[in-house]
Every structure is written in structure tokens, then in C-alpha cells.
Design a binder for these strands. Structure first.
Length: 283
DNA sequence: ACAAATTGTCGTCATAGTCT
DNA sequence: AGACTATGACGACAATTTGT
């Protein structure tokens, strides 16, 4: 299956439009500064976005409204219920909900997010002011929570180009397997995800795989040093995961900016033309 | 070419939040 | 309630950029 993208008459490959992912700074508060630095090397994030029309031959006259950011990940926003959408370069993305956001970076799929929205406005503002949170400075909601608030489905992206998908609500619990043919690692990657009671468990290597536990008469014996090692190891991994989620969250926000700016521009132009129509003729 | 400044990444700690 | 997890904050270090 091949997709055709038209932008002012010229073909554009939305997947190749993405490139360097903007590496984020340690804190959200400073992320904009950091992104600015990254974008010195790329281009300005939103300034050069453009609308393209994706024509998908096999799905009839279906069109996808997309926002293409040069040197940034692409945003593909579906205008209608079109599923599945297949895109060149070997990535097949099944979109189960309207108004989805699909992020790609370079040739390999890096982030895939399904956002269930009635309209763009349903990007709920998950960042509350301290006042809104009760007037005291408290910890912000977790990225997981924020992203869940943004959309119905939960999709976790694993660094090595693998994708882990969990279904909530109407989803059928069970073992889900997702294979990526062009994962960053050679030969692709397969992730098995076990969903039990709406909770996701990675069936890959776990922390305990790496740290041997000594058992005696069925009782796990661990000295303080071992416990500490285990704790540090877990926390190290947790920190990595947390940073990855933070980057994902920031990308999500960037996409949101791109979509909203694009929409804003459209509305401005619409307003202009309506004004012109309403203007009394002077000659 | 070199030093200083800037930025990114990582490991660790502390602790709020969540789970059992 | 205690164990566990997620995340902000911090410092160390490396890589990159900038000014001279």
C-alpha cells in the first residue's frame, strides 16, 4: 500500500519529514529553553508547519489532515474515521480512533499516540496552577496520568523502537503482541504485553532477572547491601523510564502546539475571507 | 586551538503518590 | 501501614557551541 501526500502539488513523505527528536531538558520548566537549543540545529518548531492532504488509495477518497514539521516529528491528524492507515517505509499504523496523533522520527516509528477527542479542544489542560491544586505546591500529576487524561488508549513506547499497547475500557484483556518490522535494533523487536485486570506487565527482562536472590528454606534472604543494590538498580531504571515519558509528554505538547497553531491560522484565514465577503462593494 | 559557557544525560536521593 | 513506584532536584560528567 502506498500513500500519496500532496503539498502544493509536490509529493511529501510524512515519515521522512521527521528527524531529530528534540531532546528535552531535565525539567518541564526548562524544556522550552532546551528545545530552543535543539531547534537551532533544526528549524523553528511551529513556524514552518504546513497542511498536507494524504490521499489513501485503498481507503477510497479518505483524506487525512496532517501537520508536517520539517526536521521535527510529523503530526498526522485524521479528519474522519479512516482506519486502517498504512504509510510507506514499512510502517503500518492502525488508528482506531478519530483525531489521532501519530509521531514519527526519521524512518523508524518512535512514538505513537492515540488521542480520543471530539475536537481539538478536548486536549484537556492537565497543567493546573498551584492555586488550582489547592494553593500549595504539590507534585504534578504523573506523565502517565496526564497522557491518559489526554486520550482513551494507553500506548507505551519502548526505547529500542518497540511499541507496547494496552487497551482500556472496551479492550479485551489478554496477551497483546506488536511487532515492528523496522525497529532500530536489527531484525525488529517483539514485545509481549500481558494485560491483567487492566494492568500492563512487561514480559521481557525484569529487574529481578538481573539480581540473584538467595533462598533458604523458602525464605528470601537479602542483606542490607543487596537490598540497597536492588533498590538503586530499580530506581535507576525508573529514572530512565521517567525521563523517557517526560520526553514523550513534551513531544505530545509540541504536537498540540503545532495542531493548534495550524488550526488558528486556518481560522484566521477563514475570518479574512468571510470579512471580504461581508464588505460592501465600494465601486 | 583553547577556554568558557551551554546543554544533555545519568545516577542518586528524597519524598509524594499508589498499591496491596 | 508498609512496600513499592514515579518524579523533582541535584551534582557529576561528557559533548557541543561560542567567543577570543
Amino acid at each position: 500500500m502506498e500513500s500519496m501526500v500532496e503539498e502544493n502539488g509536490s509529493a511529501v513523505d510524512p515519515l521522512s519529514a521527521g528527524s531529530q527528536s528534540g531532546d528535552a531538558a531535565p525539567a518541564i520548566a526548562t524544556s522550552v529553553q532546551s528545545l530552543n537549543r535543539t531547534q537551532q540545529q533544526t528549524h523553528h518548531l511551529v513556524a514552518s508547519t504546513s497542511i498536507v492532504q494524504l490521499t489513501l488509495p485503498t481507503s477510497g477518497a479518505t483524506q487525512v489532515q496532517s501537520v508536517i514539521q520539517p526536521n521535527q516529528q510529523s503530526v498526522i491528524q485524521t479528519a474522519t474515521n479512516i482506519q486502517p492507515v498504512a504509510i510507506s517505509k514499512g510502517n503500518v499504523i492502525l488508528v482506531s480512533k478519530p483525531n489521532s496523533v501519530i509521531q514519527t522520527a526519521q524512518a523508524s516509528l518512535q512514538t505513537l499516540q492515540v488521542v480520543e477527542t471530539g475536537s481539538d479542544d478536548s486536549f484537556s489542560d492537565s497543567e493546573e496552577s498551584p492555586e488550582q491544586r489547592g494553593g500549595i505546591l504539590t507534585r504534578r500529576p504523573s506523565y502517565k496520568k496526564i497522557l491518559n487524561d489526554l486520550g482513551g488508549g494507553e500506548i507505551t513506547v519502548i526505547p529500542a523502537g518497540t511499541i507496547q499497547i494496552a487497551t482500556q475500557g472496551e479492550g479485551v484483556p489478554g496477551l497483546h503482541t506488536l511487532t515492528m518490522s523496522n525497529a532500530a535494533t536489527a531484525g525488529g523487536a517483539i514485545v509481549h504485553t500481558l494485560i491483567v485486570n487492566n494492568k500492563t506487565k512487561n514480559l521481557g527482562n525484569t529487574v529481578s532477572d538481573n539480581v540473584p536472590a538467595y533462598t533458604g528454606h523458602g525464605v528470601v534472604v537479602e542483606d542490607a547491601a543487596r537490598k540497597r543494590e536492588l533498590r538503586l538498580l530499580k530506581n535507576r531504571q525508573a529514572a530512565r523510564e521517567c525521563r523517557r515519558k517526560k520526553k514523550e509528554y513534551i513531544k505530545c505538547l509540541e504536537n498540540r502546539v503545532a495542531i493548534l497553531e495550524n488550526r488558528n491560522q486556518t481560522l484566521i484565514e477563514e475570518l479574512k475571507s468571510l470579512k471580504q465577503l461581508c464588505e460592501p462593494k465600494t465601486d
